[in-house]
């Protein structure tokens, strides 16, 4: 893991979660390690969690950002549900990032929901980390 320290991430709390049914979390784990190595405190919640569970964990853990890794294709619904659950807990303004296999056509829909950054699996890790750092600085 070679992502370099990002001063903007020091002391920032980030929850990484996988809503939906796909069972691959290698990507999420790689991002988790890269963010840690860049100085963030990263909480990973594991596979197949419901939007309600994720929103509650994000609120309980008082995180600065929430990263959703979605490979199942139903990202727009899952992200919309997660925002609803966040809003129901008074955290509708949470900084949310989405990673996975997101067709270009869906980007706008996600951004319209309030997503702060959309990352595709082919992006360089260092760029993902730098973009998160900028958004949280």
């Amino acid at each position: 893991m070679s992502a370099t320290a990002q001063p903007g991430l020091r002391g920032k709390r980030i929850l990484l979660a996988k809503p939906g049914l796909d069972g691959h979390d290698v990507g999420a784990k790689v991002i988790a390690l890269a963010l840690r190595d860049a100085g963030a405190d990263v909480i990973y919640t594991g596979l197949r969690k419901s939007p309600a569970y994720i929103a509650q964990a994000a609120v309980d853990e008082d995180v600065d950002a929430l990263g959703l890794s979605i490979l199942s294709g139903s990202h727009v619904e899952l992200v919309a549900q997660t925002f609803d659950e966040l809003a129901a807990r008074g955290a509708g303004d949470m900084a949310v990032f989405v990673g996975g296999t997101i067709p270009a056509a869906d980007r706008e829909a996600l951004e319209a929901l309030g997503v702060k950054g959309v990352f595709n699996s082919d992006m360089r890790l260092a760029d993902v980390v730098a973009q998160v750092a900028r958004a949280l600085a």
């Binding site: 020091r10 963010l35 840690r36 190595d37 100085g39 909480i43």
Partner: peptide
């Protein structure tokens, strides 16, 4: 991590 100051908080899972 003593190097980066970051952490992976994996107990909850």
């Amino acid at each position: 991590s003593p190097r980066s100051g970051g952490s992976l908080l994996g107990d909850r899972i």
